[in-house]
Computed example of a mutant assay.
Amino acid sequence: MNRHILCAALAVLALPVMTSVASAGPIERACLSSGRDAANRSVCSCIQQVADMTLRGTDQRKAAVFFRDPDKAQDTFLSKRNADDAFWERYKNFGATAEAYCAG
């Protein structure tokens, strides 16, 4: 009986953590897995909130790749495609907003 109570208690305690990880957006997940010293749950969550306000889902997934492969950002910046230029403008706005909103 005690074993069942312990399992139930652990499940209740783990649920909020599991839910927050499962609900993390692509930017937050990429931020948390980036290995950067400043990447902690609070900062990455803040950056994701800004992404939710400023970027579409497809833009978020594209930007998340930049955390793993910064050369992709350079490729996008140097691209001659109109779609990449439009994305880059949205991405710059996201970056400036995240810096202002999440700096601390």
Results as ranks from 00 to 15, higher is better:
D69E: 06
L15M: 07
H4P: 10
G57T: 11
H4N: 14
D52Q: 09
C31R: 01
R29T: 06
A73D: 06
P26S: 05
D37A: 13
G95R: 14
C46G: 04
R90G: 07
Y91R: 03
E99D: 13
A9M: 03
K92Q: 14
A9P: 03
S45Q: 11
P70G: 04
G35I: 05
C46M: 01
V65I: 09
S42I: 15
M18G: 10
D52R: 06
G95L: 15
Q60G: 01
D85M: 15
F94M: 06
L13A: 00
I5D: 00
R29V: 04
F77V: 06
A39T: 03
W88P: 05
V17H: 04
S42E: 12
T54L: 10
L55Q: 02
A22V: 07
A64Y: 02
C44D: 01
S79R: 02
M18V: 08
A100R: 10
S79T: 00
D84N: 02
Q49I: 08
T76N: 03
Q74S: 10
A73V: 06
C31I: 04
A9C: 05
A30P: 00
E99V: 12
I47V: 13
L78G: 10
L15N: 05
F77Y: 15
G25H: 01
D69R: 05
L15E: 06
L78C: 10
D37M: 11
A103K: 14
S23A: 13
Y101F: 15
R81L: 08
N82G: 12
D52S: 07
T76D: 01
Q74K: 14
N2D: 09
A73W: 01
H4Y: 13
A63K: 03
F67N: 06
R90Q: 14
D84P: 03
A103P: 10
A51S: 01
C7R: 13
V21G: 08
T19A: 12
A96K: 15
F66V: 00
I27W: 04
M1A: 14
A63H: 00
Q60I: 06
R81Q: 09
A73I: 04
R41Y: 15
M53T: 10
R90V: 10
A24G: 06
F94W: 04
L55M: 07
F87T: 03
A9T: 02
Q48G: 03
Q49H: 12
Y101G: 10
L55G: 00
A86H: 05
A11H: 04
L55E: 04
L78S: 12
M53L: 14
I27F: 01
V50R: 00
D75H: 07
Y91S: 01
R36K: 12
T76H: 01
C7N: 11
F77Q: 12
K80V: 02
F77T: 08
C7Y: 13
A63P: 04
S34F: 04
A38S: 11
V17F: 01
A51K: 01
Q49D: 12
G95K: 15
D69N: 05
A38I: 10
E99C: 13
L6G: 03
V65S: 06
R36S: 07
A24T: 06
R56N: 11
D85G: 14
G104R: 15
A98Y: 06
S33P: 09
A86C: 08
T58C: 07
Y101K: 14
R56K: 15
S20W: 14
R81S: 10
K72M: 09
V12E: 03
A24M: 08
V65P: 05
T54Q: 11
D75N: 10
